[in-house]
Every structure is written in structure tokens, then in C-alpha cells.
Design a protein around this nucleic acid. Structure first.
Length: 547
DNA sequence: GTGACTCGCGCC
DNA sequence: AAAGGGCGCGAGTCAC
């Protein structure tokens, strides 16, 4: 059963049953409390909820204690459909257009509203909605137009489920101990300084650095100032990057590298981060599903997907609870094996440590070289030893390497590529087309043209792997959220790892649910593949104790 | 003062 | 040793 739902500006809800094809199947109903209405329909029918934007609607329901099983997110779906049609649009433009069609408040960054508020629906057969179309009716019309590509059904379901997970994660929040975070900051930086002042330990280092440079004024926070200071000391450095400075022999280097490391924590995850992002023992970032072209999630606020390893010590389960930390080990090469069907790589995937097995197979047991070779194949690395290593890989795994090289060639020629579930790479910009479009009078393409082509090829090469890995994790999340014990909550997700917060007694059940979800994700994407996708899932009290 | 830009580094 | 994919974000810098 399908039910379309809008929550009006005054907080009232309206809903309407739809037939499978999206045609209204009953009268529009009104409810002063949408949450109560949703809860009751959910109990009775477990419908798939059709709504404009999960990130707008679902938090309202969650705040009222209501969870839903399934949804169809029109906004995310439209982006997927348009992409597959080669009609990628600016996401904010899409958000603005849909908001206007569906009567939602326009996002702040949506750009100017069109004077003419009659809107043409997207899709191959344009449907024009007058500006005064009732939003509930618009839901049904947009949903119907979105049945235009059945091949994307699984991707749409996974993306919509991801949106539910994201809202639930923000709702529950990641357990975060302010006292532990404060202790870590004091160890690294000294006591909290007055605002606008450097912490004591940083200031000490800054003084040492300046002294090493002969006492001349310089700012260790400004890369240009660092480069200039070394130049005055007779040392030319191309930049102030850590790996550049590491090679320099000068007394300022050691304190400078120490300064950079500590300052990074202060700036990115210091006291002001704590003040801003942690409340009542929970870190609640906004996750942005579909925020990355490849299908990975992005986040807004709090740099949620870049929590430094050190700070994971502050992520501690509540009393009597635990965190089950799980990650898919070496996900991307396994994805490549399954995508390409390379028999020898599939065999290598039989080992829990894929890189060790790869090293044994092809690199005289040298694991680091095996890893560089595989990463170069997936990322398009060219430098240093990547070339010869890649040649070895190509010889031993021609099917797998051929797969990514085909993707690279497609990109170089400006063609689109797709992930396993059908997410489509964007088409390169008009400027790119222009630049790579043709040869000059002498029949040669310019070096900048060739470079632009190669760059886009690296992007599409990686897109098929990274994006298909995102497909896999989206499927995993969608399955997992329906299989967790009632009190267990997904509280964190980062590309290929999840954290589940649950009562200790549920830990074993959660570990088993994660393993089962991994198997099911693999089956949904690849059917009966023999590629193994091992999940490490371990109950811990503190996130830092995982791995 | 604001906004766009670069740099550098955290995560996968 | 140091270069290949995807991000967010804050400081510094410079133009307006």
C-alpha cells in the first residue's frame, strides 16, 4: 500500500491512499496530528510513504516517537532519474523546483523563485502543474512520473531507506562524552584559553618555531608565512605541506609539525566544536544522503565524516549499553571483483585479508605493494611505482583491470558510466567538452586537453567502484534497519562502517543482524556471486576500541 | 564587512 | 616515497 503525506506549514497533516501506479485511491484525509495518523496507518498497513523530502518530513514524525518502515522520497528519486537520463541538474535547482511544486518552503540556497510558478515536471513526457496545484495532488502526479524507469527500482528503494536511516541517526545522536573530549583537549593543548587566544601548549610551540627562525615574525597558521620563513633561512619549499616539511633539515621543522598536528585538533574538533555540536551527551550532525555524486553520503555541520581517530575515545556507550562497530573490510576491491566477475580476483577475495592474498598471488608476498597496485587501479594512480605494479595486476587480473580501464576510457570520451544499481555519473561541463572537443589545426590535441580528458577518466574510473560500494552500503543499511532489535539504533555511518548503539544483552543479535544484512546486500546487488564480503562486527564500550 | 578563493588536513 | 578517487571545514588572503 502507498500513502502520500504532506505536512502543511501549520503542522497539520494530509494524506491520501494511492494505487500502485500512484493514482489516488481514496479521499484526501486531514489530521491535526500527522504523527498520530501516521502511527495508526503504520500499525495497520505498513504502507510505503510517499513524500517530498524525508529530511523535512521524517524528523517531525521521529520527534513524536513515530517510526516508519518504508518510504519513497520524491526529491532523491528525481535526482536519480534525471541523472540516468543524462540530465543532471544543480541539486539546489532541483530542490527549489520540487519545493515549489510540492508547496514546501524553498530551501534557503535554492536560488530565486521563478515568476511563472506553473512548473513543468521532469521526465521525458512533460507534465505541467499549475502553481495552485494542491501539494497532495502534486505528490501523486510526481510519483506517477517517477515510475518511468523501472530499472532503478532497487536504487530508489535503497536511497529512500538511506534517507530514513540518516534521519534516525540524527534523531538518536552519537553518544559523545564531553568530559572525555575535554580531557583529551587538555592533554593536547593545555587548559581552555580565553576566546581569541591560543592554547598554552600551542603558544609554546609557536614561540619555539619563531625562535628557530631567528626570532622574526611569522605565523605558523599561514602556509605562505611558513614558506617565506624557510626562504629567509635559505630553504626553498614548494609548499607548507607536512610531507614536504618532513624532508627539510631545519630546527623549526619538528616544532612546526607538532604545532600543525595539535592546531588541527584545536581548530576542527576543539572546544568550540564541542560547544556547537554536542548537547546532552549526543553528537547530532545532519547527514546528506545523495550529497556526493558517487552516492556516498555527505554531512553538514560538525564534520561528521571526519572524526579524528583520537577523538573516537569520546564516543562511549551509555551505561549498560554497548556500541557494535562494524565495517566491511576492503570493500572496494571486492566490489570490483564482483562487478567485473574476474575469476582470479574473486578467488583472492576468499581471504579475509584481501591484500595479503593478492600479495601472495602476484607480489611475492609484499602486501604494501599489492595494496598500492590495487588502489592505483581503482583511483587511476600513475606516479612512482604505480605503473609497473599496475602492469603486474593487469596481467594477472585482466578482467578486473579491464573493467576500470573501460570506465576510464568512457570518461575520457565524455560518456557516462553507471554503478551497479544504476546511479549515473554526471556529464562533464560544457567547458570540458569544449576543451577536449577536437584537435587543433595540426591534428594534435593540446596537452591541457589531454590532461582534462585523463582527469575525467580518473573520475569515472573511480566512480564505478566507489559508487557501487555506496550502492552496497545503502542496501546494507536498508536491510539492517529493519532487522535490528527494537532497542538497537544505528547511530553512525561512514562510507563502509556503521555503529549500532544497543543494550548489552542485544549485542549478539546485532552482530548477527549485521552479518545477515551484509549477505543480503551482496545478494541484492550481485545475486549468487562467490565474491566474499566479510563484515567485522564487534561490540565495544568505546568506539576507539574497535579495530 | 562580505564573498570567493586557496591551502592544508581530517575521514573513507 | 608521496600520488591517484570522493568529501567538509576553517584559517588566511585578496578583491570588492
Amino acid at each position: 500500500m502507498l500513502v502520500a503525506l504532506v505536512i502543511d506549514a501549520d503542522g497539520a497533516g494530509r494524506w491520501q491512499k494511492l494505487l500502485d501506479d500512484g493514482t489516488p485511491a481514496g479521499p484526501a484525509m486531514t489530521a491535526s496530528s500527522p504523527a498520530a495518523a501516521v502511527a495508526s496507518l503504520e500499525r495497520a498497513h505498513r504502507p510505503r510513504w510517499v513524500w517530498a523530502d524525508t529530511s523535512e518530513v521524517y524528523p517531525v514524525l521521529l520527534a513524536a516517537g513515530v517510526r516508519v518502515d518504508r518510504c519513497w522520497d520524491l526529491h532523491l528519486t528525481e535526482a536519480l532519474l534525471l541523472g540516468a537520463e543524462g540530465r543532471h541538474r544543480e541539486p539546489k535547482e532541483l530542490a527549489g523546483a520540487l519545493a515549489r511544486v510540492l508547496g514546501l518552503p524553498a530551501p534557503a540556497d535554492a536560488g530565486p523563485a521563478k515568476k511563472d510558478d506553473a512548473l513543468t515536471l521532469f521526465g521525458p513526457e512533460p507534465v505541467v502543474l499549475p502553481g495552485d496545484t494542491d501539494p497532495l495532488a502534486a505528490l501523486s502526479l510526481v510519483f506517477r512520473s517517477q515510475q518511468r524507469n523501472p530499472a532503478l527500482g532497487l536504487l530508489i528503494a535503497a536511497e529512500s531507506a538511506s534517507a530514513l536511516v540518516a534521519a534516525e541517526m540524527t534523531h538518536h545522536g552519537l553518544p559523545w562524552r564531553e568530559d572525555v573530549h575535554n580531557r583529551l583537549l587538555e592533554e593536547v593543548l593545555g587548559p581552555r584559553p580565553a576566546s581569541g587566544r591560543r592554547p598554552k601548549l600551542l603558544q609554546d610551540l609557536a614561540d619555539q618555531i619563531q625562535e628557530a627562525f631567528g626570532g622574526r615574525e611569522m605565523n605558523p597558521d599561514a602556509p605562505a608565512s611558513i614558506v617565506k620563513a624557510f626562504a629567509r633561512a635559505g630553504i626553498e619549499v614548494p609548499s607548507a605541506r607536512r610531507w614536504v616539511l618532513k624532508k627539510v633539515d631545519h630546527p623549526a621543522v619538528k616544532p612546526l609539525l607538532d604545532y600543525k598536528e595539535r592546531a588541527r585538533l584545536w581548530v576542527a574538533h576543539g572546544w568550540s566544536w564541542l560547544d556547537t555540536w554536542v548537547e546532552d551527551g549526543r553528537f547530532r550532525p545532519d547527514y546528506v544522503v545523495g550529497g556526493v555524486v558517487t552516492g556516498r553520503w555527505a554531512s553538514r555541520g560538525g564534520a561528521a565524516l571526519q572524526i579524528p581517530r583520537l577523538m573516537r575515545q569520546a564516543v562511549i556507550a551509555d551505561d549498560g549499553w554497548c556500541l557494535v562497530a562494524a565495517d566491511a573490510s576492503q570493500l572496494e576491491p571486492r566490489i570490483l571483483a564482483a562487478l567485473s566477475g574476474d575469476p582470479r580476483l574473486t578467488e583472492v577475495c576468499g581471504d579475509d585479508d584481501l591484500y595479503a592474498a593478492l600479495a601472495e598471488d602476484s607480489f611475492k608476498g609484499e602486501r604494501p605493494r599489492a595494496k598500492i597496485a590495487m588502489l592505483s587501479a581503482m583511483y587511476g594512480g600513475t606516479s612512482g611505482e604505480a605503473g609497473p605494479l599496475l602492469a603486474v595486476l593487469r596481467k594477472r587480473f585482466p578482467v578486473a583491470v579491464g573493467y576500470v580501464e573501460d570506465a576510464a576510457r568512457a570518461g575520457e570520451q565524455g560518456r557516462m558510466v553507471r554503478t551497479r544499481l544504476g546511479r549515473t555519473s554526471p556529464t562533464p561541463s560544457a567547458a570540458w567538452q569544449e576543451l577536449t572537443g577536437g584537435a587543433d589545426e595540426s591534428g594534435e590535441s593540446s596537452s591541457s586537453s589531454r590532461q582534462a580528458a585523463r582527469n575525467w577518466g580518473r573520475f569515472t574510473r573511480n566512480f564505478v567502484v566507489q559508487g557501487s560500494a555506496a550502492d552496497w552500503t545503502a542496501a546494507l543499511l536498508g536491510v539492517l534497519r529493519t532487522r535490528l532489535p527494537a532497542d538497537a539504533h544505528l547511530v553512525f555511518f561512514q562510507h563502509d562502517e556503521v555503529l549500532v548503539h544497543c543494550p548489552r544483552a542485544d549485542a549478539d543479535a546485532v552482530v548477527e543482524a549485521i552479518a545477515a544484512a551484509g549477505r543480503e546486500a551482496t545478494r541484492l546487488l550481485f545475486g549468487e556471486t562467490s565474491v566474499r564480503f566479510p563484515m567485522n562486527a564487534v561490540p565495544v564500550t568505546c568506539y576507539a576500541d574497535a579495530k
